[in-house]
Design a protein around this nucleic acid. Structure first.
Ligand SMILES: [Mn+2]
Ligand SMILES: [Mn+2]
Ligand SMILES: [Mn+2]
Ligand SMILES: [Mn+2]
Lengths: 225, 225
DNA sequence: GTTTATTATAAGGCTTACCTAAAAATTTAA
DNA sequence: TTAAATTTTTAGGTAAGCCTTATAATAAAC
């Protein structure tokens, strides 16, 4: 069964590098390995293979980056992923927090013709249900100008723009608490000694750990006028 | 990446055995190998593995059959396949003759929750766009009572009920000639020496080889009254 | 009943993607 | 600048799915 173009592992590596290296720095192989649930030796091997194929650049002891070719390939997978998420939520009424995992399988089995027909059917949505931008068919992505909740200061307020990177565990946690894109947010205070952030979201105050706060992005309401 | 349940090769073997053994006889390993595009040695190896897993029964020198477990697994894949075909044709407006191949990838990457939500969204269709019945969620299939075109006699007439088994080459050929389910058919004559069948379909007469005729199923109009 | 064709097995190999354990190289922190 | 932590490499293995060539077993045809 020679399904050349259908290589789940390669696509997941590229997608994960794209996530970890968001912000144009290098993705450490150790982080890659952890995210993908493989040993660092395995990840290193795969990184070497992908470097030979011209999809990654590896700077030893620093980390890996996508080449232009690798970036395009990653964006195409991400496009399929997010389009499927839209379909699964908007038409199949599947739960917001579950569709990420369903789409993570479909994304590797979707022909370009199907992807583009799906995009047209969905009327070319701009973001996935979790707020992340859907790359164009040629792999361009709109630059985000939002801020991680973890970078804000008490007193700041705005609205949740997106959850990134996504994972079932995180989405489940957030869904259970109604912490979704669009919700208004007020940063109340930060507990001392690197404690949790006290955040009022949709009327209720939540204590969020720093790690979770790093995954919640906000569009600030600027009231310095 | 331990995607256990997502084993394309195994699923394709089971599906192919189901197709070849339609009519409760045994599927020869040689036919399996040919259909899957692998060597007979490879197919034999895989058949052994699937026998050990309790999915197939192998009668040496005769062929293989699905066990009850294997049959259910195959029907579940076929259900996903045909549901996707419906979606691709009816909602994404993709070509009738191409969706078989697109669905052949998606069928291995579709969670049960997605499958059932899709079935509900499509309003539980009974057949795929090529006329083949969609198994129920528990793996039951409606018994067909149609006849291959190749088994008919000159003078018989009726309508095309389905194309089976499906393949891109065959569907492309038929689509180009408007030979689709629902079309009225009149069997005019059969050329001597195992020659082609002369068939009037939707007003036009086509010369169909015996092999193609074996893939076109008809519901006869009984006019012995 | 012997020949021929089909089917099965044996033997040896390949690639991808994973694993563990141990050693070496490099960076970072004390 | 030395010690500690991180990162990489080496070595040896596994399993799934493929491959070819060659031989053995069985079934079908003559
Ligand atoms: Mn995936
Ligand atoms: Mn998403
Ligand atoms: Mn398939
Ligand atoms: Mn079909």
């Amino acid at each position: 069964m020679k399904h050349e173009s259908f290589n789940e592992s390669v696509e997941m590596y590229l997608k994960t590098v794209s996530e970890l290296a968001a912000g144009n720095d290098l993705a450490p192989i150790s982080a890659l390995a952890e995210r993908l649930g493989v040993s660092t030796v395995s990840a290193t091997e795969m990184v070497h293979r992908l470097c030979e194929k011209g999809l990654l650049d590896h700077t030893p002891y620093k980390g890996v980056a996508l080449t232009e070719d690798g970036r395009r390939r990653a964006q195409r997978v991400i496009r399929r992923h997010r389009l499927w998420e839209c379909f699964l939520v908007d038409f199949l009424n599947l739960p917001w927090e579950k569709v990420h995992d369903y789409a993570c399988r479909l994304e590797h089995a979707t022909d370009t013709a199907v992807t583009e027909a799906l995009a047209a059917f969905l009327n070319h949505p701009q973001t996935c249900p979790h707020g992340n931008p859907i790359p164009s068919a040629v792999g361009d992505v709109a630059a985000a100008n939002d801020t991680p909740l973890g970078d804000l200061q008490p007193g700041d307020h705005g609205a949740i723009s997106r959850i990134y990177p996504e994972s079932l565990l995180l989405l489940d946690y957030l869904a259970a608490r109604g912490i979704l894109p669009g919700q208004p947010v007020e940063f109340e205070e930060i507990a001392p000694f690197n404690g949790p952030l006290m955040i009022k979201i949709g009327g209720e105050t939540h204590a969020l750990g720093q790690e979770i706060a790093a995954h919640i992005f906000m569009e600030l309401t600027d009231d310095t006028h």
